[in-house]
């Protein structure tokens, strides 16, 4: 019964050098990127990968050497993820994101966005009406920390003082803080959407309520117009970004509850990725809003100018996100 050499051993000896070559190329490619490879190696990689796959298939059929099969499985898996991995460069991905992916995803979530905007406005109107009737309602909507003395008890002069600043120091710290804080809240609103939309809806609604309560306080002292300029210079960008993050949360929460024609697992991953693109955009928008709020608002003390910037920003976002473009076929 003794064969001179096992077939599986001869097979391994014949193919081993190819495997080692593939392993070497992969190790270098994984360490940095495809740029570390020569042209010859890049051409050889898919060929070596297919040959390793065929080796794996043969080894499973003829060899009982488990360490060999485990080696080939690991090698083929690594090669698979490299060969079929993302081939575009980082720069191209960023261009594709701004040129196509972000607006397309935002357009697809138009209904959720509309609902989130409506919830914000609803919250603002309700809080406004309640606070106008009975100013103690203000304290139900705004925490004392956030109010920072700007309550119904403050005089018109004090309130005016908070709207127009003279000094200009520490602006960039303020802007950075606002950006990181708001982005964190937006990410939380998105993640909370997973729980069947409800916490995200609450956050969006509450965001509107705070706004409404503040408007009521300032309006009752005859500062409504000035407050509008103060809040909207960054608010159009920021409020819209928060609404978008709520919309992204709604999309995943709604899909979890009603997956539609796909299986729940498939529907969730499609919705999650779409929402993630919108959320990436939200983080960028909040960066812009932080700059407008922290720097722009402190330097620009003219209410009319503030309104102009607010309107311009809103217009730019709407045009950028919703005006259809030629290459947005998908």
């Amino acid at each position: 019964m003794k064969e001179l050499t096992l077939k599986s051993h001869r097979f391994r000896k014949e193919r081993e050098s190819e495997w080692r070559k593939l392993e070497d190329i992969l190790t270098r490619a994984e360490a940095s990127s495809a740029k570390a490879l020569t042209d010859d190696e890049i051409i050889a990689l898919p060929v070596l990968y297919r040959s390793a796959l065929s080796s794996l298939s043969v080894a499973r059929a003829i060899s009982l050497d488990q360490s060999l099969i485990a080696y080939l499985e690991s090698l083929c898996t690594r090669a698979y993820f490299f060969v079929y991995g993302t081939r575009t460069t980082f720069l191209k991905r960023i261009i594709a994101f701004f040129a196509r992916d972000w607006p397309a995803a935002a357009r697809e979530l138009w209904l959720e966005t509309a609902i989130a905007v409506a919830l914000t406005i609803l919250g603002a109107v309700v809080a406004y009406v309640l606070t106008m009737r009975d100013s103690t309602w203000f304290y139900s909507f705004v925490s004392p920390l956030l109010a920072d003395g700007r309550g119904p008890a403050a005089s018109a002069e004090e309130l005016r003082g908070t709207l127009f600043s003279e000094e200009a120091s520490g602006l960039s710290i303020f802007a950075t803080f606002l950006f990181t804080h708001n982005a964190q809240v937006a990410l939380l609103a998105f993640a909370l959407g997973f729980v069947f939309c409800l916490p995200a809806a609450y956050l969006v609604l509450y965001n509107g309520m705070m706004l409404g309560a503040f408007i009521a306080v300032f309006a009752s002292k005859g500062l409504g117009f000035e407050f509008g300029g103060w809040v909207l210079i960054h608010g159009t960008t920021e409020l819209y970004a928060i609404a978008l993050s709520g919309a992204a949360g709604f999309r995943i929460g709604w899909t979890l509850a009603f997956p539609g024609n796909l299986s729940r697992v498939e529907a969730m991953s499609a919705a999650g990725r779409k929402a993630a693109i919108v959320m990436t955009g939200v983080v960028i928008m909040l960066g812009v809003a932080g700059a407008l709020e922290g720097v722009g608002r402190q330097l620009i003390n003219d209410t009319g100018f503030r309104y102009a910037i607010a309107a311009l920003a809103m217009l730019l976002w709407l045009v950028y996100l919703y005006v259809p473009r030629e290459d947005s076929g998908g």
Partner: peptide, 16 residues
Amino acid sequence: PLGFDAIFARNAMREL
């Protein structure tokens, strides 16, 4: 291929 959208989604959920 593992895209940026999937990576963002899976990591943003860490908030929750």
